[in-house]
Design a protein around this nucleic acid. Sequence first.
DNA 1: TCCAGACCTTCCCATCATGGCAAGGTCAAG
DNA 2: CTTGACCTTGCCATGATGGGAAGGTCTGGA
Lengths: 143, 143
Amino acid sequence: MNIGQAARASGISAKMIRYYESIRLIPSVVRSESGYRHYAEADIHRLRFVRRARDLGFPVEQIAALLRLWDDRSRASAEVKEIALGHVASLRDKARQLEEMAAALQHLAATCHGDDRPDCPIIEDLAGGAARGHQHHARNGGA
Amino acid sequence: MNIGQAARASGISAKMIRYYESIRLIPSVVRSESGYRHYAEADIHRLRFVRRARDLGFPVEQIAALLRLWDDRSRASAEVKEIALGHVASLRDKARQLEEMAAALQHLAATCHGDDRPDCPIIEDLAGGAARGHQHHARNGGA
DNA sequence: TCCAGACCTTCCCATCATGGCAAGGTCAAG
DNA sequence: CTTGACCTTGCCATGATGGGAAGGTCTGGA
């Protein structure tokens, strides 16, 4: 199987397959005499593993760790679980941060008329909280 | 005020102030004869505006739009509100995606013993769903 | 046999926002 | 005048991905 077929079979673009190989996330595959990469079933499985892990938002570094654990038949499931739960925590943390920003901004937007008047609490907040109204500042604009 | 003081006053690193200037998010400030940037109060206000918008997760492009609206005393508040609510939606969307990943992974992890046995539903799922157990695949790993 | 077109290779560039480092100029205080 | 803090520009790196160029390979058909 050439890289294009491997890409279609795994759901990872050829570009990314080469990239993953370059950073050693996946091993170098065999090449034909002319230099074409050749993928066997086991390689496709590995790529699909990577694909699923990416879909779950794992950073590449952690995927590397998961692949090592996959290869190690005797590792404790606790090791895998620890990585997984650590990642869950990090995902939740990021989600919470985004949600907090959204809530703050929505709160601000709720007090904005949103009509054709120029009055806007959102801009006023960004401009420095409740303190000032709207000081002008036309400046030496042209770079 | 030099760039370092402006950085301290605005909460944006000197590096980022220069960057923002280079991409024209903020206008070029006046320079001393020796080339040092000099910041006036109005510049600091503008930088703080940018800082707050960044804290709310606005991408730089949208901050540029907000700054234009800030400068335009006659614009309708509806324009600002639209940008803000659009951003709220995008933040919520990202947060939801992360949360979905976290939930899926947590669900998976819940079925994993997490002890010293090698059995691990997490790895098994990544390796290809319920289909196979754990096929081996030692390969030309060397790279 | 030869060509077209689809495929492959490597290499470089861009994203987005940020930090780091290096080489060199400037300024203020001692 | 020296020292040290500060400034300047420029390049490189991140993390994961896409785009494109320049050139080699393979396959099928006329």
